[in-house]
Simulated assay, not measured.
Amino acid sequence: MSTAYVIVTIVAAAAMLIASGVDVFRAQWVRDNMKRYGLPEWTLYPLAVIKAAGALGLLVGLAIPALGLAAAICLVLYFIGAIITIVRARGYGDLVYPTPYLVLAAASLGLFVAS
């Protein structure tokens, strides 16, 4: 397990937990975006749980590698889905929100595979 993998994974997990917290506290800008994307507001909590579970999976994956691999794959798929949702709603300017999270999850996955 490389130092780069550990650092990127911890940063990715922290970012996912912050994103999850934004959903839990239902910031107005998040609710507005959800409405624009055609998603019901009640989906904020399940989406927050998915991000938090992914973050915890990344962290536990430092001790149990298979779980970290699964969490990284799921987070990559989650954020690809978020990007598809934004593109489908023609909210191109909002792509800057999920892209850094996708990059972090993909970097964690790539570094895991490389190590």
Results as ranks from 00 to 15, higher is better:
A55V: 02
A55K: 04
N33I: 09
S2N: 13
T43A: 13
G93N: 05
P65L: 10
A14P: 03
M34L: 15
L44N: 11
T3E: 05
T85V: 09
Y97W: 14
V22I: 14
T3F: 08
S115P: 01
A71E: 03
V103S: 11
I80H: 07
Y101T: 13
G61P: 00
R31Y: 04
L77K: 10
Y37G: 07
I83R: 03
G38S: 10
I7N: 09
L109C: 03
G54A: 03
A70H: 06
F79N: 01
A105E: 01
A70F: 04
A12C: 08
G57M: 02
R36L: 09
I80W: 04
L77R: 11
R88K: 15
A14H: 10
V60G: 08
Q28I: 05
A48K: 03
A19H: 10
V24S: 05
A70V: 05
R88I: 02
K35R: 15
L67V: 12
T3R: 14
L109E: 00
N33Q: 15
V76Q: 07
V60F: 11
V11C: 11
V11P: 04
A15H: 01
G57A: 07
D23L: 15
P100F: 07
T3D: 06
L77Y: 03
A14C: 13
D23T: 11
T3V: 05
A71K: 07
C74S: 13
P40Q: 14
S2H: 11
M34D: 10
G54V: 01
Y5V: 02
A105I: 03
